[in-house]
Design a binder for these strands. Structure first.
Lengths: 212, 212, 212, 212
DNA sequence: CATGAATGAGGTTTCATTCAT
DNA sequence: CATGAATGAAACCTCATTCAT
C-alpha cells in the first residue's frame, strides 16, 4: 500500500516534470512549432518516455491547459466556501480578483486554453480528458452563477438567468485575455487585463447600483 | 493602363476564386486538416498556382479571415456616415446590429480570425498583411470609440476613455463568439450569440440610462 | 489525347522504376528489413515520391508480387488459346511447364506472394488491390480446372471436381516452392523445384494412365 | 541434482506459461500486431521477464511454432514403432491421419511455422534453435521416407528415391494448409484440408494400386 | 529471479513549397 | 501565367530491449 502510493506519487512527479519542461519550450518556440522531441530534450528524457505519461501530443498540451482551470476552480470554491458572512458585493469583488489571479497565475496557458476550446483541437482529445475539462468548466460556471444568483435574490441584480451572467462574464474575460494578447502582438502595449476587467465589472456594478 | 487595370482585376478575381474554394474545404475538413492540395483541387487549379497568388499557406488563411474585418469596417463606416442626424442611442443600436451581422456574415471565419490573432500564428505573416490587419482593426475600433465618445459628450456615458469602451465591447464580442463555439462542442446548444450580445449591450445601456 | 497517353505511360514507367529498385533492395536486405527510405535511395528518388505512386508500403510490396501472378495468367491463357488441336496430355505438359517457368521468372517474388496470402498481411491492402489479386487467382485456377475438365471428359482423369484438381496442383506447387526455399536455408541444396514438379505430375499421370 | 532438476522443470513450466499466453494473444491480434508487452500482460509477467526465458521475440515466436513439429514427430514415431506387423497400406493411412491431426492440433501455429521457414525470418534465430528445427524436420522426413521405402521394397511403389516421396507429400501438405488459409481470407469457405489431403493421398494410392 | 520504467533508434507518412517545362 | 511532379525535412509515435533496483 505504501508502495502503491509512493509509485503513484512518483508517477505524478514525472508528469509534472514533463509538463514543466513542455511549458518552458512553449514559451520559447510557440505552441505549433514545439515538437515532442523538443520537450523530451528539455525534460532530459527520451521521446518514448513522454508517451508513458501522455497518450499523445494533444493530451500533453491539454493537460497543461487544464491546470489553469483547476486553479480557477479552487479559487472560486474558496470564494463560496471559506467566507461565510460575506456580502454579495464582497463576493463579486472576490470573483473579479479570482479571475485576475488566474490570469496572472499562468497567462500563457490561459490563452492556450481558450484556443484549445476550438472544435478543431477538441476532436483529438480522449473522451476522458474531454470529460475532465467539461466538468471543471461546468463547475466553475456553476459557482459564478451561484454568486450572481445570490445577488439577484438580494435584489441587487436584475432578474436575468444567473447562468447568463456567468456566461457573459466568462466570455468577456476570455475575450479580454485574447484581445490583450493580440494587441501585444501589434502594439506591444503593457497588460491591460486588470484595467479591462475592472471596467467590465464596473459596468456591471453601475447597472446594479442604480437600480436600488 | 486599361490593360494594367484589367490584369489587376483579373488577378483579383483569381484570388477570390481561390479563397472561396478554400472556405469550402475548411468548412468540411476543419482548418488544421486542410492541405494546399485540397484547396487546389477544389479550385480546379494546380498547387503551384496558389503560390502565384498567396505567398504561403498562412497568408491564404489570413486573407480569408480579413474579409470579415473588411465587412465590419464597411458596416461601421455606414453607421457613422450615412445616417447624419441620428441619436446616439440609435447609433449604439446600429453598432450592436453591425456586430451581430458580422457574426452571421461568416461565423466560421470570425472564429478563425480570433484564433489567428494569437501570436503563434501571427509570426509567419508578411509585414504587409500584418499592416493590413492592423489598419482594419485600428479603423474599426476607432469608429466604435467615436460612437462612444459622442455618447460621453452627450452626457449619456460616464467619462471613461472612449477607446476603453471600444476595447471592452470588442473583447466581449470575441469572447462570446469563441465561447459559443466551445459550448457547441460540448453541449450542442443552439447559437446564443445574439442573446448574449443583446445582454451585454443591455448591461451597458442600463448603466447609461440610470445615470441621467 | 496523345498527351494523356504519354503521361500515363510516363507514370507507368516510374512505377516500374520504383518496383525494380524495390526488388533490388529486397533481394539484399530481405523483406522485413527493407525500409521505404532504402527503396527511395535505390530508385534515386525522394521518399515522398514513392507515395505518389503507391498508397503505402504494403501496396508497393503487393504490387511487386502481383507481377508473377500476371505472368502465370498470360502463360496459362497461352496454353488454352494458342494451341487448338492439342492433346490433353500435351496441355497438361504445358501446364507443368508454365508453372515451372513462373518459378524461374521470379522465384523470390513467388515465394513472397505465397507469404503475402497470409491473412495477417492481407488486412492492410486496399480493396482494389485485393480484388485485383483475387481476380488473377480466380482466372488462373479457372484455366487449370478447364484443362483438367477436358481430361475428365476425355476419360483420362478420374471423375473428380476439376476445381479440386486445380486446387491440389496449385497447393502442391506453392508447397514445393516454399519448401525449396526453406530447404535451401538449411541445407543449401540446389533447386529441386523442377524435379519435384515433375514427380508430382508423374504421380498424377500414373493414376491417369492406369485407369484406361 | 534433485534441485538442479527441479529448477530445470520449474524453468520449463514458466516457458510453457509464456508460450501459452503468447498463443492466446496471437490468435486475437494476429502475429505482426502482437507486442512483447501484450504477451507479458497476458502472462501476468513483466516484459523483462520474458527475456529471461527467450532470447528475443523471434525466438519466442519460433519456439511456439516448434511445438507442432514436435507433435508431428511424436505421431510419426508412433506410426513406425508401436504397430509392428502393420501392412504398408495401413502405415500410409496412418501417415495421412498423422498429418491431418497435426493440422487439427494447432492449425494457426502450423501456418505460422510454414511462414517461419522463409529465409527472411530465419536469419534472426539463434543457431541452437535453428539446429533444433533442422533436427525435428530431418527426423520427420526420415520417418516418412522410411514408410515410403517399405512400400518400394514391398513392390508397391515405383522405384523413386524415398526422400523424394517424403518431400513431395510434405510440400503438398504445407501447400494445402497455406492455400486453405489464403482461400479463407477471400472466400470464407469451410476447411478443406481434410478433403484435399484425402484427395492427394488418393492420387498417390491410385498410382500405387494400378501398378500391381 | 523478477521487475517495469526508461530507452532511443528508426519507421512510415505528410505536406508546404519549388521549379523545369 | 500555369502546371504538377518531385522534393525532403520533419513530425509523431512504436516497441524490442535493457538494467538498476
Amino acid at each position: 500500500m505504501g508502495i502503491q502510493e509512493r509509485k503513484q506519487r512518483e508517477r505524478e512527479r514525472r508528469r509534472q516534470q514533463i509538463m514543466i519542461a513542455a511549458k518552458r519550450v512553449f514559451s520559447v518556440k510557440g505552441f505549433s512549432k514545439t515538437t515532442m522531441d523538443d520537450i523530451a530534450k528539455e525534460a532530459e528524457l527520451s521521446p518514448g518516455t513522454l508517451y508513458l505519461y501522455f497518450k499523445n501530443k494533444d493530451e500533453l498540451f491539454s493537460s497543461l491547459s487544464i491546470r489553469v482551470l483547476q486553479y480557477l476552480n479552487i479559487r472560486l470554491e474558496h470564494v463560496i466556501n471559506s467566507s461565510k458572512p460575506n456580502s454579495v458585493e464582497e463576493k463579486v469583488g472576490a470573483l473579479k480578483e479570482a479571475m485576475y489571479d488566474v490570469y496572472k497565475f499562468d497567462s500563457m496557458m490561459l490563452v492556450n486554453m481558450f484556443h484549445l476550446q476550438s472544435s478543431d483541437t477538441v476532436r483529438n482529445l480522449s473522451p476522458q480528458l474531454l470529460e475532465n475539462i467539461r466538468e471543471l468548466s461546468h463547475n466553475s460556471l456553476g459557482i459564478m452563477s451561484q454568486i450572481f444568483e445570490e445577488g439577484i435574490q438580494a435584489g441587487i441584480f436584475f432578474d436575468m438567468p444567473p447562468m447568463t451572467y456567468a456566461d457573459i462574464i466568462w466570455s468577456t474575460f476570455s475575450g479580454i485575455v485574447l484581445w490583450e494578447e493580440s494587441k501585444r502582438v501589434f502594439t506591444h502595449d503593457k497588460s491591460y487585463v486588470e484595467q479591462a476587467l475592472d471596467t467590465a465589472f464596473e459596468i456591471f456594478r453601475r447597472g446594479i447600483k442604480t437600480t436600488k
